[in-house]
Simulated scan of single mutants.
Amino acid sequence: MAVQVAPDAATTELRAPEWTNLHRRMGAVLRQASRVGRVPDRPSWLTGHRDEHDGRCPRCSTALRRGRFGGRATVWCPHCQPG
């Protein structure tokens, strides 16, 4: 299950259920990544799609958006991570 936090959301905007879900999902991703030594490819993850010029979300096929938040480049699905 995706966390669905907007990429430009300030941490102060998150409610307790969003923090709990984000923390749980981060732990799951870190456990999977540590087993293989990298972010593993998963069919529903943006990994592998984020570098494509006309990348599409693997979950809903919406065109991915690119931007910079906090000085870092990011890619997100505007449908799955609405702002």
Rank of each mutant, 00 (worst) to 15 (best):
R50M: 09
V29D: 00
D51C: 09
S34D: 13
R35S: 10
L46K: 00
E52N: 15
L46I: 11
T47L: 02
D41R: 06
S34K: 12
W45A: 15
R35V: 11
G27T: 07
H53W: 12
L46P: 01
W45N: 14
R31P: 06
G37E: 02
R38I: 15
A28D: 11
P43W: 00
H53T: 12
P40N: 03
V39K: 09
Q32G: 10
S44G: 07
Q32A: 15
R25I: 08
L46F: 02
E52W: 01
G27I: 06
A33K: 11
V36K: 07
R35I: 07
T47I: 04
G27S: 12
S44D: 04
P43Q: 10
R24Q: 13
G37A: 03
M26Y: 09
V39E: 04
A33T: 09
H53F: 13
V39D: 12
L30S: 12
G48E: 00
D51W: 03
A33W: 13
L46Q: 00
Q32D: 09
H23L: 12
M26N: 08
G48L: 00
H53V: 09
V36I: 05
V29M: 10
R24P: 06
S44E: 05
G27F: 04
R31A: 06
H23S: 11
A33H: 07
S34R: 05
R31W: 05
S34N: 14
D51G: 08
D41S: 04
T47V: 08
A33M: 08
E52Y: 05
A33D: 08
V39Y: 08
H53M: 15
H49L: 04
D51E: 09
R50Y: 11
R31E: 14
H23W: 08
V39I: 15
R50W: 07
T47C: 01
P40T: 01
A28I: 07
V29Y: 02
V29A: 08
Q32L: 07
H23D: 15
P40Y: 00
G37L: 06
P43A: 09
R50H: 11
G37C: 05
W45L: 04
H53R: 07
R25T: 07
S44H: 06
H53E: 11
Q32K: 13
W45K: 01
H49G: 01
E52L: 14
W45Q: 14
W45S: 12
R50C: 09
V39N: 13
R31H: 07
A28W: 04
V39H: 12
T47N: 01
R38N: 04
L30K: 15
H49C: 02
H53K: 10
G27R: 09
S44T: 06
R31Q: 07
V36L: 04
Q32R: 12
D41F: 11
L46C: 02
T47D: 03
D41M: 04
P43K: 04
G37M: 05
V29F: 12
R24N: 15
R25C: 13
R35F: 06
H23Q: 14
R31Y: 15
D41Y: 10
E52Q: 06
R38W: 11
A28F: 11
H53A: 14
L46G: 01
V36T: 05
R31T: 14
V36Q: 03
R50P: 02
R24G: 08
L46Y: 02
S34I: 14
G48S: 01
R31G: 10
P40G: 00
G27D: 05
T47Y: 01
G37S: 10
R50V: 15
L30N: 15
R31M: 06
P43G: 02
E52P: 01
